[in-house]
Design a protein around this nucleic acid. Sequence first.
DNA 1: CACCATGTTCCTTG
DNA 2: CCAAGGAACATGGT
Length: 309
Amino acid sequence: MGEPLSLLTPVLVWLPPKLTLSSNRMPELPEVEVLVRRLQPLLVGQVVSSVQVRRLKVLGNTSLGELRRAVVGARFGGVRRRGKYLLFELVPARPGPPRLLVGHLGMTGRMYVAPSSAPLAKHAAVVLGLGQRRFIFEDTRYFGRLSFSCGPIEKLGPEPLEPGFTADEFYEHLKRSRQAIKTRLLDQRVVAGVGNIYASEALFRARLSPRLRACRITRPQARRLWSAVRAVLRVAIRFGSTVPLSLSGDGSDNRLFYYGTAAGQGDFYTERLRVYDRAGRPCPRCSSAIRRIVQGGRSTFYCPNCQRG
DNA sequence: CACCATGTTCCTTG
DNA sequence: CCAAGGAACATGGT
């Protein structure tokens, strides 16, 4: 600063970073939480004028007729999250009890609100008309769901960031299984919302080996892991809340925040995962090489030096 | 071209 | 009946 501008001073032009966040990252609790917060102001109060289902599979056991009857004319009430599930409350036009539409993004699902004039995505599975705009559930692999089936959410374990998730119950639950601790973390009945990425991250933070058998965990170790799970998820939500992604379909971005991807420039896209997908690279604590193993058919990443047990 | 990635459900085996 | 392990699902990226 203070340097006088001359005709020879190069002019720096700021270009917005391209919003091409890696699409191979799957939504877990933090991604769903951030999505729910962003969808809320776009949906609450909106009245559904039409329903288009382009892939019946994503409705699961819900029939197209049932969806139409319950949704057309209804108004979006609350938008909430449970584990990795999105919960949409739909208030009927005529007096009656609200219905709960349950969504899951599977591995490649997206949900966003776009102008009705925008071209429809190739893999748009369900489209709800909202006047000039439409709510779109898109999923290239169609593993996701949007239905009235509440069965899956009733089986979920405690919400990790709420008081119902206690270190003591977590410990008692782990004690009952001979499976590797990493595999247990992926069981949605133990704690809801942890997926393959944050399971590795939490174990690293707790300095516990992913191969440790759950029943061999000590009470202090369980407490450390309990704390690490919560910290990892909270940090991811905080980070995701700062990413300036648009949910209005006016950009070419993928409309879903993915944590920890280093695409583009600037602080928003700094790599923040410590071990996931970093095989062979140095551990951020001790510089040993991060190792990749397969547990239950899924990749696990950890530092063999820092993570014991 | 063969294989890999993810989350959930379903099936089989012990 | 339960725990644990593996296949299947569908598609695109490498």
